[in-house]
Design a protein around this nucleic acid. Structure first.
Ligand SMILES: [Mn+2]
Ligand SMILES: [Mn+2]
Ligand SMILES: [Zn+2]
Ligand SMILES: [Zn+2]
Lengths: 145, 145
DNA sequence: TTGGGCTTGCAACTCAGTTGCATACACATT
DNA sequence: AATGTGTATGCAACTGAGTTGCAAGCCCAA
């Protein structure tokens, strides 16, 4: 998210006790520009303190449940975790590199305008739309030459 | 796909030996109107003949590789497998019920027009776009009342 | 008839995440 | 102070979906 975010305040604002581990998990996600896999989050947290992987997954569940974090599907078997939507961080599509698997955030204006208007279609309730671009990322492109 | 599809011919046309198991896997996928999880495909095939799960996954890999089948992400941990694109079966978005997990195919015209035009963006190569609507399906809606 | 490649099966494995249960700590009640 | 109650974390074992290694069966070619 941003360097001046107060993660403890964000947690408290969502009714979550801001324990050191929860702050560290949220900070690790917030300080990256792209959504991270659990294995990346655990590595980042462990640079500063010790954490068990079950605790990490429980914290992630809690943060996703409270809307602080968004669980994203990258098209492989591991979820990615990125910051939830706020006014400073609007909904946006993502890009996944089919070679190295990295997920990147794209500009919100790449979300096709009006994608929200398909709200009722054949008696379903549509809650949200997930748009994922797939291809080859810049760094994999460079490595090919 | 359709009842009059000749699955053996489709396999041969893509350079794949049309063994009974491969035909049964492709037929199981083609006869459904929605993409299936591997566990559903194996159940469908086993209604007619015996198959080992490793064989199923190897056949799925092969069919995906040849473009006969498309591997889709439903936002959970199990892939779904649906028929690949042809002239009779154009690209289309999907819907996933966040309650029961079922994936359904939506009309191709729900794909936002012009979504293909984001072909070059920030030095990435974009190969395709995956649009997935999430919400509550008709049958889960009924069951709520 | 022998040999190679393709197809399938079985056992064991991997990876990402989950469950069960125990321990530790905080804070409230007596 | 002693006790209880809930919350946070850890550890071991488990699960589900898919993968790997290797062996066996089959087909056709030399
Ligand atoms: Mn993002
Ligand atoms: Mn479909
Ligand atoms: Zn890449
Ligand atoms: Zn449903």
């Amino acid at each position: 998210m941003c360097e001046r975010c107060n993660y403890a305040e964000m947690l408290e604002g969502h009714g979550v006790d801001p324990t050191p581990l929860r702050q560290a998990v949220l900070r690790s996600i917030g300080e990256e520009s792209r959504p991270l896999a659990a294995v990346e989050i655990i590595a980042a947290v462990r640079d500063q303190m010790s954490i068990n992987k079950v605790t990490l997954y429980r914290i992630l569940d809690l943060l996703v449940d409270r809307g602080l974090v968004k669980r994203l599907s990258a098209g492989d078997r591991a979820f990615r975790y990125g910051m939830g939507e706020t006014r400073h961080h609007p909904e946006h599509p993502h890009f996944v590199c089919s070679q190295c698997g990295v997920m990147e955030c794209l500009e919100p204006d790449l979300l096709p305008a009006g994608i929200r208007k398909f709200q009722i279609k054949g008696k379903r309730i549509i809650k949200h739309v997930d748009v994922r671009f797939e291809g080859i990322c810049e760094s994999c492109l460079k490595a090919r030459m």
